[in-house]
Write a protein that binds this DNA or RNA. Structure first.
Length: 558
RNA sequence: GCGCCCGUAGCUCAAUCGGAUAGAGUAUCUGACUACGAAUCAGGGGGUUGGAGGUUCGAAUCCUCCCGGGCGCGCCA
């Protein structure tokens, strides 16, 4: 509905300018890309445009003069616009009549869980890859942030009409896997009473010992006196499987299901890496130096070239990553989105360089960089270190804080700001905790509808109710908020910013609470009760839709 | 040293393509529960947007320099 209103205003603004030009009042070649938006200040009307100011240079007239002309020539028959005002340096403010708002409510009631979706993506194939942690340990707070953000971004893009696939890239190859194998081996031998040193660069976490215990429960000392290679192979095979399953489970408990789990090792096995290297070589982007094979990153604006095959013949992680991204584009994704931690930001431009080398548009690859998470507990920073094993895992987070609060906290902040995660606040079941504010609004609504049902009052069907009875400021404002959802989803999807949805959820809840304080739903006048029941039901739907996008539950009681 | 991100109210953060008087939450102060859930609402105070220049009708936003914090800069991933 907002889209229709905006469209009609934009159209009429253009008509006004063209009419003014035809009358010789103003001269310009083309109409600039002006915006019609909701002003920050309510007193500036329902919508405002900067069109007049943008034309200043070209028309060689002061902005307020142009604004006067626009107002003068603005078609009088626009069904939504009640009045126009010129304000400030040359803004034109529109005041609307409320007719369009009363059309929003039935729209929500009829679309229900689909209200808010828009067809921005037109079915474009998009891939969102996130978390993609090494299967050598447990997921930590950083992974958790990536999980919450990535899943919400995927949900947003789906709601905006994209054809989305969620993918987890399993880093199950390379040096860290060998390192992991050595750690497992050391723990295994230690467990069997051997006095062997633990590798310096090994994985010190307790969970590695747990994994080896499980292995030993099953196989005992079967691999004590065998070839080192075989022992490591069996250990790593078992451990990767076990770790990956653990990761899948933890993410599932966090409300996240992937479409594809993609193994790095499979790129080695299938020859995809070799093929990628050959392709780059054929195109002349590789050269040999000091026994290694290098990618000419500098030809794509990089600071330096990168090794793709080491002098020992083993391809680097970068080689695998190139093959992986080539594979993504070969699968037909038109928009490839990666969520990376800030510690990987240095890889963005070289990955884009690689994409370009394959002949794809580097802009089709979009890397969302998220900054580090700092954990606070008892007002103090908790240092997290994988080496020493002192870190909060995602499963501990889910258990202690709960999925809803945790996901809300991660999504609440934009990805590129450092996140201070306050454990105590997230855990607290008090008014300080923002997630309850939103959920409480939903619980309140559920309670009203429950009591209405008990009293034999069902939510009536819209066509039999006079919605214009909803005319108090709190009611109008609430409907207004409900009307914004599609636009908010569109903006958040394009900007890849799920934090906007958390903010919207909070604003909507706030508007509902204000309404609730002023307007009694279950009252004496039947016609008003009916209209308000519909409004409340519509609000419930919108709250549910928004919370679903960010993976937070909408409880009926709390 | 070079590159990227960040610096906004006491604290945690917004501000969508450069727009109007920089907004929320929290903390603090004042007020509201004898009908739908007070995990709520209404209101007050709180700012040189790290600093200095510049660009223009207009800058938290863009440019230059400086200060402070984080993260990178490997034949690791």
């Amino acid at each position: 509905m907002v889209a229709e209103v905006l469209g009609s205003i934009k159209e009429n603004l253009k008509t006004a300018l063209i009419s003014a030009k035809a009358e010789g009042k103003i001269d310009f070649v083309s109409i600039p890309e002006f915006v019609v938006e909701v002003p920050r200040e309510k007193q500036h009307g329902d919508f405002a445009t900067n069109a007049a100011m943008l034309l200043t240079k070209e028309a060689k007239l002061p902005p307020r003069e142009i604004a006067k002309l626009i107002v003068q020539f603005f078609p009088a028959d626009n069904q939504y616009v009640a009045s126009l005002d010129i304000a400030g340096p040359g803004f034109i403010n529109f005041k609307l009549n409320n007719s369009w708002l009363y059309q929003v409510v039935p729209e929500i009631i009829s679309k229900r869980e689909n209200y808010g979706t828009i067809n921005l993506g037109k079915g474009m194939k998009v891939q969102v890859e996130f978390v993609s942690a090494n299967p050598t340990g447990l997921l930590h707070m950083g992974n958790a942030r990536g999980a919450a953000l990535g899943d919400s971004i995927a949900n947003l893009l789906k709601a905006a009409g994209y054809d989305v696939e969620k993918e987890f890239y399993i880093n199950d190859a390379g040096n860290q896997i060998e390192n992991f194998a050595k750690s497992l081996e050391a723990r295994y031998l230690q467990l069997l009473g051997q006095d062997v040193p633990f590798p310096d660069e090994g994985y010190h976490g307790e969970d590695v010992i747990d994994t080896v215990k499980l292995f030993t429960d099953q196989f005992g000392d079967k691999y004590l006196n065998v070839d080192v290679e075989l022992r490591r192979e069996m250990l790593i095979k078992y451990a990767l499987d076990e770790k990956l399953n653990a990761i899948k489970n933890v993410l599932k408990n966090f409300g996240i299901e992937y479409d594809v789990w993609f193994s790095e090792q499979s790129l080695h096995d299938s020859g995809a890496i070799q093929e990628t290297i050959e392709t780059l070589d054929e195109r002349g982007y590789l050269y040999e130096q000091e026994g290694a094979l290098w990618f000419k990153g500098t030809e794509f604006g990089e600071e330096k070239d990168e090794v793709v095959v080491r002098s020992n013949g083993v391809p680097t992680y970068f080689a695998a990553d190139m093959a992986y991204h080539r594979n993504k584009f070969k699968r037909g994704f038109k928009w490839v989105i990666n969520l990376w931690g800030a510690d990987h930001h240095g890889h963005v431009s070289r990955m884009k360089g690689a994409v370009k080398a394959f002949g794809y548009d580097p802009d089709q690859l979009e890397v969302v960089i998220m900054q580090m998470v700092r954990l606070f507990q008892g007002g103090e920073v908790v240092r997290m270190s994988k080496r020493t094993g002192t870190y909060i895992t995602l499963s501990e987070l889910t258990e202690e804080v709960g999925k809803d609060a945790a996901r809300y906290f991660f999504v609440m902040r934009s990805a590129d700001s450092h996140l201070d995660f306050d454990m105590d606040l997230a855990k607290s079941q008090s008014q300080e905790n923002p997630v309850y504010y939103v959920q409480y609004a939903h619980a309140r609504i559920s309670s009203i509808l429950r009591q209405a049902a008990e009293a034999g009052l069902e939510v009536p069907s819209v066509e039999h109710v006079d919605l214009t009875l909803l005319n108090k400021p709190e009611e109008i404002e609430l409907i207004r908020k409900l009307a914004d959802l599609p636009e908010v989803i569109g903006g958040a999807a394009q900007a890849l910013e799920p934090s906007r949805m958390a903010r919207y959820a909070h604003e909507l809840a706030s508007q509902f609470h204000s309404f609730y304080t002023v307007c009694r739903v279950l009252g004496d006048e039947k016609s008003i009760t009916e209209a308000r029941l519909i409004l409340v039901s519509a609000t419930q739907t919108v709250l549910q839709n928004v919370l679903r996008l960010i993976g937070v539950n909408a409880p009926e009681r709390m």
